[in-house]
Amino acid sequence: MADAGRLAGFERRGRTAVAIDGLRAYLLIAGMWIRSTMVYRTSFVLMAVGNFAMTALDFAAVAIIFGHTRVLGGFTLTETAFLYGSSGVALGLADLVVGNLDQLGRRVRDGTMDTLLVRPVPVYAQATADRFALRRLGRLTQAAVVLGWSMTRIDVAWTAVDVLLVPVMLVSGAAIFAAVYTIGAAFQFWANDAAEVQNSFTYGGNALTQYPPTVFAKDLVRGATFVVPLAFVNWMPALHILGRGNPLRLPGWVDFCSPLVALATCALAGFAWRTGLRSYRSTGS
């Protein structure tokens, strides 16, 4: 018994050590990529501005829509902007940190995956840091600006819980999106040119959650709650802050479940990643 306990303890310490090792490698490799991109400074600026503008035009569409109507699905422009901003920040964070996982299929195809497997640091850290691109800050900045603007305008009597819920929502949302990226990447170990499927859930999930849930068919909202839990990225906590009822009439405590859902999806993503990597290592393709 004592032995088993000691072994389990060792195992736990081992995992923490691996995580720290991975984080350190991630930062080292990401730093190299930042310096690499800074060799082409003009290109970097163009891409960052482009990323910003791409999402800004996206919001221009929202603004044009609200030029034609005061409410959409019962939500005003500022309320929709709050949803838009919170979803955008969550995706932007995930995209910045692990967004390059969509290159995994390419690495599997051209065989450069192998060069990651012979280094003494976790493959996940290397694959996520691969081609780390600060230009993705463009998207994040744009979403943050919209979110900040909406928070000064929405008609909310901010309580302490509401204020605390905002960062919790953003971090949980980013974690859920990161898990989706990871599961998508794991899937590419088998179907190495199906990278686009994960866009459906990342960019598609973003397109979904930036509008009020009342806009969509109930079945779609159910799917986004119970199957792919994108509703927990922002809808659930944001609707609580906005003082709106739950679209599926779920009990009130569900509004606070985002962190738990994020943990669960991340655990699932970890499992998917390990399974994918194991399959790659047994088939080599």
Binding site: L117, R278, R281, S282, G284
Partner: peptide
Amino acid sequence: IKMLTGILV
């Protein structure tokens, strides 16, 4: 080589 480096099982 891939088995010797541990890439392949």
